[in-house]
Amino acid sequence: MQKLKGILLPTLSLLMICLVCAGLLAFTNGFTKEYIEKAEKEQILNMLSSVIESDRFSEQKEYSTGRGEPYPYYDAFDKDGNRIGRVLITSTNGYGGILRLVTGIDAEGKVTGLKILELHETPGLGSKVNSESFLNQFKGISRELILSKAGNTGASLGQVGLIDAISGATVSSGAVSSCVNTALEVNALIEKGAN
């Protein structure tokens, strides 16, 4: 009987502690839940607004091509409710890992802006794709992108569709271009499906 008491008391007190802790966690969860949701919504809004100017965005939708993962996207509207564009999230394999990109495309199918969400490229080299000078090249493009390695041709001469890769970071540059190409393709598919 003594032995049982020796096991029972510690087990009970441990159980009590577990219950109290679980209760505390449930309480904190309930308290912080709405703040967390609000913060998440704000983060998404910031992300979307950084690539396209819009008054309102739809909820996250998904477009499935039947192959692979579906593509998440958001419709963008002006204050009258007209659809002025779309924001797509695409990803591909970069040099050091997954590269995830947010692309804003207007109603005419032209790129309005880019934002890199996830980057695992070589710091100082491939990571340079996350610079304004590189990303701004994509603005205004509406057709398939071709990567140029020659340096002084293409985008720097204002030819839409040709992208200057960053020297020494061909793979990373190609990954970004590939993401944007996919975004343009999917956007076109969504448009076709909507009509």
Partner: peptide
């Protein structure tokens, strides 16, 4: 075990607070 439960509870509480108020 009691310490572990208490510590992990506190960590989770702090986790939730940080996620709510300092998401970045």
């Amino acid at each position: 075990p009691a310490y572990i439960v208490i510590i992990s509870t506190m960590v989770t509480v702090v986790q939730m607070l940080v996620k709510a108020f300092l998401p970045v």
